[in-house]
Amino acid sequence: MKILIVEDERELATDMVRYLSGEQYLCEVAPDYESAIERINLYDYDCILLDLMLPGGSGLQILQHLKDRNKQDGVIIISAKNSIEDKVKGLQIGADDYLAKPFHLSELSARIFSIVRRKQFDNSNILEQDGLKIDLLSKSVSVNGKELQLTKKEFDLLLLFIGNRNKVVSKNAVAEHLSGDLADMMDNHDFVYAHVKNLKKKLSEANYGNHLTTIYGTGYKWQA
């Protein structure tokens, strides 16, 4: 699967490439407006990570360019501006998601995962991964045809872990995934432990193998 990273900050772009390349993603970087447009015209991508402030133009213009050409690439806006107007405007033009800098790479990976799968399966909203069947729309999960009763937070957790297979996801990232911006305002993320414990318990009750391991003092890892 191909991902285009439109980001002028070289360090950040390199880090994203490094993190995402471990998965089955093939990443390309466009550091400015011109090269981004050039690549978009030449290739189709499963997902485009789009910074809004670029040398030579604005990310919103690139987005408009995509829509004008009726391109179906998934788009996640990654912006340091964190302005509500930009977010609303971006989503209106047709971005699939918006992520404010600074973000956790695991969060980015989980979002890419959802968008790519959705696009791949013709917006069917159902993913199958590691023996799990996940319906993104009804937020239900089944193991071998047997439905799992998950709370909304447990469901969100599962998506985060599956979107970061074989990666360590820090407790911070989990907390932020569950409570959004609010997690940023809190220091104590002990509640994460309770949700993870419940998820693990439900998975093992459904006779699903133990994929989720706790890395002491750091976070969690979904091994597959």
Partner: peptide
């Protein structure tokens, strides 16, 4: 931006298989 870079670097560091527990706790 530097904050974002710092955060992603730490996350990448956490992925390092050869990290000892003490080291990964330090990173955390």
């Amino acid at each position: 931006t530097p904050l974002a870079i710092l955060r992603t670097k730490l996350e990448l560091l956490l992925q390092n298989e050869s990290l000892t527990q003490e080291q990964s706790e330090l990173v955390s």
